[in-house]
Design a protein around this nucleic acid. Structure first.
Lengths: 344, 344
DNA sequence: CTGAAAGCGCTTACAG
DNA sequence: CTGAAAGCGCTTACAG
């Protein structure tokens, strides 16, 4: 910390003017006239001293520090080959750069049971930044509630709800994407279409369920929701219900199901169509699996970039309204695990 | 920026104490006694107002803020499938987390010709952080010199030198690793061993060259250094010199050479042994190439973690000495492009 | 046209 | 034990 910076005062001394004069030459507000002779002297002193503005002093005057926080409930640079968050972070980085903001990664926050937390012994370090983007599936609802109550400006990546009030978010539209997947199967003649998903009320799971149920109801079919992570049992349930097409929430589930069906002598997609509801499984890389899943893709890079924009709007004072709760469309991928239904 | 920060003055008003008292409670210097009653009142006010320190104010006073800057001359989250920097950043992230520091990514810095720069119209934003880690192959020597002159605490990832004074760095020991690769070929009977590398005086290139020359001299061989990016010409030169083993600086060069040799009806490694000097080519992913190169690996994660530690030492006031100029050993990878030399 | 002064939020001696 | 004050480097009205 022993740095000796060149200050405006020092430059002023060299140039034989007041410190304020130096600032004026630097920031040259147009409605202030400066004698050319003086300006030249100051500029010469600026150069000879090697002065650089101390961002601290400058920002202190104007509030705001042009720093956006990024708080991730998981590691930002994970070690796995596949990396769910990187495209999101790239989107954030690019947009931040375009808007002239720095990014503060909150890595100092402690971990409890391997997960990071915003609040630690009563302090919210997020306050260092002008506002923050939060992400991660293992978020703590209590923390989001508290941040909301404290009116701290933040945007979550992914839809999140809180009893404490509206949370600004930018998420992927799982409801609509799932609905479209259902419709795709329907158009191909499938009439017994199941959802194989996770249990619980995590927002992404809930949204897929809703999309499925909306679609089923629209076609006057009784929803068949299986919350069964064990592939054997899932498989048996599907057989019992004579399902020909199934929407699956996670890659692991889809792979288990695929293996089971193949082992039973069935063909995918000949006998059973499978659609994967997103590429959101952190464990799933690009082409790690040999199967070219029919699926939808989450617009991850766009999520990041949009979150930055929404956050800046929040900071600009536009109060949190519907425009700060955005769902971006997913991109459907044809894939090779869907075919016309076989009449049995 | 309309977010009205809660200031210490505000907290003080709520608690009915002076602003200085709030600061004291927060920073609790041990030799100041505070009435438990007062401390409790302040803490309650702190909580109820949701106060967070303004790092600008604090830093202006000359205090650290537990933030380490990360300045990359290239994109931190690149879009390419392969990603040279990610392991480094993961190392940085993990060590920063372990040490209780946040990471500030300087994304706001403008780009000139696609590259970032530290100094922009006379401002050095790095000063926000307590100190910074810099990385990237396209660094600007003039900027490093200036940072050094201004005695700004920073550590470069990769050896860098500057006429302005010693630069703290943590790099990979290319000299030693290259020497070992040469020796490996020598032990297998190779006597005509060439270096195929880049031109220029970029430190990583210089180090490989030195390692090669040291090894050649030790074995009393005349060094044969080819700085030839065109694979055809490189190939012809190797043939003309009856080279049986070659150390190659970049993946692109190695691939070009391999293709050329194969096209000429030669076998790698039967007729020609190739060792790749590092996995440092950003365009090279894990297993993108079908060839299992004999090579050495750069300890990237360790580079990042060590850089954090060195930076913290610098900040702790230990003056930059030899301990702040570290070269980490590379890990040799056997690979399949090396074999015993054939006597012609 | 230029200087003196106030004040951004904070920490730290210095008095009481 | 606590308050009043100085000062970090800067910008910006405000007087001259």
């Amino acid at each position: 910390m022993s740095r000796q910076r060149v200050t405006q005062a020092e430059v002023a001394r060299v140039a034989g003017v007041s410190q304020a004069m130096v600032s004026l030459v630097l920031n040259g507000s147009s409605d202030v006239r400066i004698a050319p002779e003086t300006r030249a002297r100051v500029q010469e002193a600026l150069r000879s001293t090697g002065y650089t503005v101390d961002i601290m002093g400058r920002r202190l005057r104007g509030k705001g520090n042009n720093i956006l926080g990024v708080f991730s409930y998981e590691s930002v640079f994970p070690s796995g080959g596949a990396d769910f968050y990187r495209p999101i972070l790239r989107g954030i980085e690019e947009e931040a750069e375009a808007q002239g903001y720095d990014l503060l990664l909150f890595t100092s926050s402690g971990r409890r049971a391997g997960r990071r937390q915003v609040y630690e012994n009563g302090t919210n370090r997020l306050g260092i930044a002008d506002g923050s983007i939060l992400l991660g599936r293992h978020n703590d609802p209590a923390e989001l509630a508290r941040l909301t109550r404290e009116r701290f400006p933040f945007v979550f990546i992914g839809r999140r709800e809180s009893p404490a009030g509206p949370i600004a978010y930018v998420g992927a539209d799982y409801v609509e994407a799932t609905r479209q997947c259902y419709d795709r199967l329907w158009r191909l003649g499938h009439r017994r279409i199941a959802l194989l998903g996770l249990a619980g009320d995590h927002e992404p799971t809930v949204d897929r369920r809703r999309g499925y149920e909306v679609a089923a109801r629209r076609h006057r079919r009784t929803p068949l929701v299986l919350q069964q992570e064990d592939p054997d049992q899932a498989w048996q349930a599907l057989v019992a219900e004579q399902v020909t097409g199934v929407l699956v929430e996670t890659t692991a589930m889809a792979e288990g199901l695929h293996a089971r069906a193949t082992a039973a002598g069935l063909d995918v997609p000949g006998d059973l169509s499978i659609i994967l509801l997103g590429d959101n499984d952190p464990s799933q890389g690009g082409g790690d699996s040999a199967v070219d899943w029919s699926m939808f893709r989450i617009p991850r890079e766009e999520l990041g970039a949009t979150a930055v924009r929404v956050l800046l709007e929040l900071l600009a004072g536009r109060s949190p309204d519907s425009g700060h709760r955005l769902l971006l469309p997913c991109v459907l991928h044809e894939g090779g695990t869907v075919a016309a239904a076989v009449r049995r």
